[in-house]
Design a protein around this nucleic acid. Structure first.
Lengths: 213, 213, 213, 213
DNA sequence: AATGAATGAGGTTTCATTCAT
DNA sequence: GATGAATGAAACCTCATTCAT
């Protein structure tokens, strides 16, 4: 934590992710964040305007990262199915690597009234629009059904991921051992993308995606 | 509001739905609820233990209503596709008739830390399990793919609805006129249920479901 | 409790004594009293003006009873020592028979700000004045030291009883078995009244006092 | 009040003593305390956990001070009578110097339900045990009657002081001018301690006690 | 007389943010 | 830039009392 290398802004953000994930945004106090970050209480306010701003910064930083990754995938010459696969793969890997961050993005960010500002919606929607673009590309190539509007498809795709991860994070009755998150990912793909079938193809797509990271 | 017929508990609950939907659970004060309900402040606390309890009562009452409806649909002799259709139809109609209530269920309830109690999870999961049962029935009848676990399918189905309604409620960039909610419903069905195609069949199923209400 | 014979006022008063003794005046609610009395909530207010009034009624009723008893003892032809003995005996017997009542009188009544009204002080002081009268009689008869003002003596006498009973009621470290309350009473007599010695005399005085009841 | 030298904790405590003495613990609001202390409202809660904690801190601080003083007196080579005299003198002088504090200790502290915790009883009882030790020393030296248990004697001694001060504080019918508190102190000594007689001896003991402070 | 639902005033405490060092 | 003590607004809930039946 008290990492001299890491800039203090990042230290605070990482600590906040941990604390938000543990207690929830509304239930934790700014004092908890400063303690977890091992910085002075008032230091928070030298790097962020407010508690809100910390949470929204977490969203913005990570969402922008996601968007950049999506952009790369979109511009690749993979098939639409592999593109979707690449995005799914990225999200689920993010969850595996940093479940706290994902928890915060999925649960705490949409909780915040201030999240629903035009600027944030714009950023938020860019992801849905990207998904829609890929879906539309698939429609044009005759891979996906044409009687579905791409934007609705993007909601369904995101909703599937969102709700599934929510279950992994919160549902105490859910047996994680029997349903490793990677299995869930594959099943969602199968359900949403009729053309998604062979494992070889998937493995190849994933490999390619990772190389491009 | 000051309805002599309606029991006071229901009056409070309806007022709370309105206030929660307008301002959000954390941003509204209990005083706002009592004013909206046109009852004395302390009356809230004769019918509910706390502000939390009001929100969770909204969830419990409506979720139980949803579960009862689902149970009826499950026990009908409709095909699994029509059963899913019936549930979608019920949820989307609920949204149309009482968008505030849906907003509260989708946005405020999962915000509340206290929501994640074993009792609530049990209630919450009964819906997913019901969806999974129908999906499994479809698998056994050879209608749905067998390489998807029913419980994951239920998450995807619910997530599709949840995220879509969320967009209808919150997204200011979203053009409601071009995407009436019924259209969204149909598109989600098409995306998730490969066998769902003909409009006649759907209309028939909906009719039957409504009659059975 | 639901005693048809006992007038309802007395039922409420007895229930209040029990509840006040258990939880303390400030920590119990009027609802607790009505429940313990098995009367309707609002019935309290047909017999008493307020919660305060209930507590003060307990004081007044019992204090008047004590005063009447003291008056009888004063007017007897016992020696001043036996008179004091009679009063001590009455108080300690009251504690043995109804510790809850004594607890309320000693702990809750003086807690109440409203207790310190001129009327109540007048009533309260009549007891001290009675004690002082007896002490003065003893001084005049050459039994007690003359260099002590009777009123101060009355405070000391009452304080001894008050503090001792307080210990019996509240002190968890106090070993009741080793110090039966009667032993305490005798020791206080010995300490305060130099002439108080022989057991026979005491027994006689007690007997006489009881007969006069 | 706004004393830069005095640590803020002490400022708050002194203000609380004043406010509690004036209005009583239950009748005053925490806002009154902060105003009297001329500190910000929330500052109370940086130094104390709660309103209760403020009152109990007043008790603990002053009681510990009393205990330390008693310990010194016990370890002196004064006679048991002079030791008791020293303690009486200290308590009555404390009352003269800070009647508000004494009022709070005698009236408000024992009001508080939370006062009756094992820890507080332990502290409280140390005073009674100290008094009992001195009384027992007097018994062993043949000064006090042996047929009185020291612990009961300690209750009587404390009760005498407690009740007398209570009268000085609260009784409106009591004529303070005719009974200066020092006179009361002497009379209590005469009543409780048969051997206590000569004024010269007393004066000497008091002098010695003060010197040793 | 008896009931219990309805009332609203009032107080403690929390916590994000600022300020003086 | 760093610190942490100081700040005060804001909100939930309790509870004695009244009122309508």
């Amino acid at each position: 934590m008290a990492d001299k290398e890491t800039p203090k802004r990042a230290i605070i953000l990482n600590a906040a992710i941990k604390v938000f994930a543990e207690k929830g945004y509304h239930s934790c106090r700014t004092l908890d964040i400063s303690k977890a970050a091992e910085v002075a209480y008032a230091s928070l306010y030298q790097y962020f305007k407010s508690k809100d701003d910390i949470l929204l910064s977490i969203f913005r930083d990570n969402w922008n990262f996601l968007l950049r990754r999506m952009e790369k995938i979109k511009q690749s010459d993979d098939s639409p199915i592999d593109k979707l696969m690449g995005i799914f793969d990225f999200i689920f890997r993010s969850y595996t690597q940093n479940p706290d961050m994902m928890k915060v993005i999925i649960m705490d960010v949409p909780r915040l009234d201030q999240f629903y500002s035009p600027e944030n919606w714009k950023l938020y929607n860019r992801f849905f629009m990207g998904l829609a673009d890929i879906f539309q590309e698939g429609q044009e190539k005759g891979i996906f059904r044409k009687d579905i509007s791409p934007i609705i498809a993007s909601y369904v795709i995101y909703g599937a991921v969102d709700t599934t991860i929510r279950q992994y994070v919160y549902n105490p009755e859910f047996n994680h051992d029997n349903f490793p998150i990677e299995a869930a990912r594959n099943e969602i793909m199968r359900l949403l993308i009729p053309g998604y079938l062979s494992k070889e193809r998937t493995a190849k797509a994933v490999k390619r995606t990772r190389k491009g990271a």
